[in-house]
Simulated assay, not measured.
Amino acid sequence: MNAFGPAAILGLIFGFMWGIGCSLAVMYSIYLGGYRKAVKDSLARPQPEHYSKALEKIRAKHQKKAANR
């Protein structure tokens, strides 16, 4: 422990926490941007083609689950 010194250990710990915190913030902002885009697409008229295809896949999956019950 004395070879590195307490300042180096604290720097390593704070650097690790800073790095993890920043990466989580970036991942959350990417997630939120995708969520906003999905809401925007769902409210658009006419709805985009990729939204309609995704919605049909989801409905088919729900119908399949309901039929299996």
Rank of each mutant, 00 (worst) to 15 (best):
Y35N: 10
Q47T: 03
M27V: 06
R45Q: 11
A60H: 05
G19K: 01
L32W: 12
P46N: 05
V39R: 15
S52C: 05
F14Q: 08
W18D: 10
H62S: 10
K53I: 07
H50Y: 06
H62L: 15
P46C: 05
L24R: 13
Q47D: 00
V26G: 03
A44R: 14
M1K: 08
L55I: 00
R45A: 11
C22Q: 11
R45Y: 11
G11M: 01
A38I: 05
A3T: 13
C22D: 08
A7D: 15
G11T: 01
P48N: 03
S29Y: 08
H62T: 06
A3E: 15
A38V: 06
A44H: 04
V26S: 07
R36S: 09
H62I: 10
K37I: 04
Y51C: 01
I9V: 15
A38Q: 10
S23H: 07
K64F: 08
K53L: 09
L24I: 10
M17Q: 08
L55M: 12
A67F: 03
P48E: 01
K37L: 12
K65N: 11
K65C: 03
M27K: 13
K53M: 06
A7W: 02
K53C: 00
G11E: 04
K37Q: 14
S42K: 08
K37Y: 03
K61Q: 13
L12H: 05
P46W: 02
A54Y: 02
A25Y: 08
M17N: 04
L12T: 09
A66W: 04
I9A: 09
A44F: 00
I20A: 14
D41T: 01
G11H: 01
A38W: 05
I13D: 02
K57Y: 05
L24G: 08
R36A: 11
S52T: 12
A54H: 04
P46L: 03
V26C: 07
N2M: 10
A60K: 15
M1V: 10
A67N: 08
G11S: 06
N68M: 13
K57M: 12
S29I: 10
M27S: 15
Y35M: 12
H50C: 02
S23Y: 11
I30N: 12
G33I: 00
N2D: 15
I58Q: 13
K64H: 08
Q63L: 14
G5S: 07
G33P: 02
G11A: 07
P48I: 01
G33F: 05
Q63G: 00
G11R: 01
S23G: 02
L43Y: 05
N68R: 15
Q47G: 02
P46G: 04
S52P: 00
K53A: 09
A54Q: 09
E56C: 01
A3P: 01
A67K: 15
I13N: 01
P48V: 00
I9K: 06
F4A: 12
H50A: 11
P48S: 03
Y31S: 13
Q47H: 04
K40C: 03
R45C: 04
G21P: 04
Q63A: 15
K40I: 00
V26A: 14
G34F: 07
P48A: 03
I13P: 00
I20K: 12
G15F: 02
L32H: 13
G5C: 07
S23E: 12
G5F: 05
L55F: 09
K61W: 13
A44W: 00
I20D: 07
A67Y: 02
G5Q: 07
